[in-house]
């Protein structure tokens, strides 16, 4: 081998080594789409507008066939009563399915507590539902992969594959999951995926007479929900868990759990 030949071959070797192995990886168009899809569902709750009528809970139970009398629900409304002495009372009787029909506050074990009007500093309602987290702990802990995130950001449960271990229920810091009394598998709010994927709104959004609940597409800058989330001051629940929840709240208060 002469010098010319040696240099030529060396250059080929160096050039070959310079090509990183990653560059040879074929790009899957599906992966690209999932990384930046044109749809990401998000929810906006205006707590100022909620009056605690419970129509959303009722509609949800009927729409999603969660037994009406069972004491579990995909969505619920909490009532917060903050007293002048700083005490905070919270309740959600029957998940607020029938609304809040009495001033008495449920304190568990079938007992109620009455608070005089003049003792109350402030009181408000907070609707709750699944946060469809961007980093969902429930999906992380499912041992069989029966619960998963869709490309458009909704966490779903496969009732045919769930083994019912309850690890996802334990893993959710928001307490949105439960066992379906009939199917005996993990159950949760999915933003009425069967409706939103057909262009409809979720049942609770349609049922709310005051517009406290709205659903929208975060990827669409002209979506009214996105506009509010981008331009106004909104809060999220339990940020410290690092779950990146996608239900945004207007009018959150420090007492909200």
């Amino acid at each position: 081998m002469n010098r010319r030949e040696f240099l030529k071959r060396s250059m080929v070797v160096v050039a070959g080594m310079a090509v990183p192995a990653a560059a040879l990886h074929l790009i899957d168009p599906k992966q690209l789409l999932a990384a930046k899809p044109d749809l990401r569902w998000a929810f906006l709750v205006d707590a100022y507008k909620c009056v605690g009528c419970g129509f959303c809970v009722k509609a949800c139970k009927l729409e999603n066939e969660v037994p009406y009398e069972a004491n579990v629900s995909r969505t619920w409304v909490e009532r917060y009563v903050v007293k002048k002495d700083g005490e905070v009372l919270i309740d959600s009787p029957k998940a607020a399915r029938d609304g809040f029909t009495t001033k008495k506050i449920e304190v568990g074990e079938g007992k109620f507590r009455e608070v005089k009007d003049e003792e109350i500093e402030k009181a408000f309602f907070v609707p709750k539902l699944c946060n469809q987290c961007e980093n969902p702990p429930c999906v992380q802990v499912c041992p069989v992969g029966a619960t998963y995130s869709t490309a458009d950001g909704v966490v779903l449960v496969d009732r045919k594959w769930c083994i019912g271990c309850g690890y996802c229920i334990m893993g959710c810091p928001y307490g949105v999951r439960f066992f379906h009394p009939v199917h005996k598998t993990a159950e949760k709010c999915n933003f009425c995926y069967h409706r939103i994927s057909k262009g409809m709104k979720s049942a609770c959004v349609d049922a709310c007479p005051f517009g406290a609940r709205q659903i929208g597409n975060l990827r669409d800058p002209n979506d009214p929900v996105t506009k509010v989330i981008m331009t106004e001051r909104v809060g999220i629940l339990k940020e410290e868990y690092g779950t990146k929840p996608q239900v945004y709240y207007i009018g959150l208060s420090k007492e909200v759990r």
Partner: peptide, 13 residues
């Protein structure tokens, strides 16, 4: 048995 405020879906699973 629940005491004070517990999320509606929470039970001892």
């Amino acid at each position: 048995v629940k005491e004070l405020f517990v999320y509606p879906n929470e039970y001892i699973y």
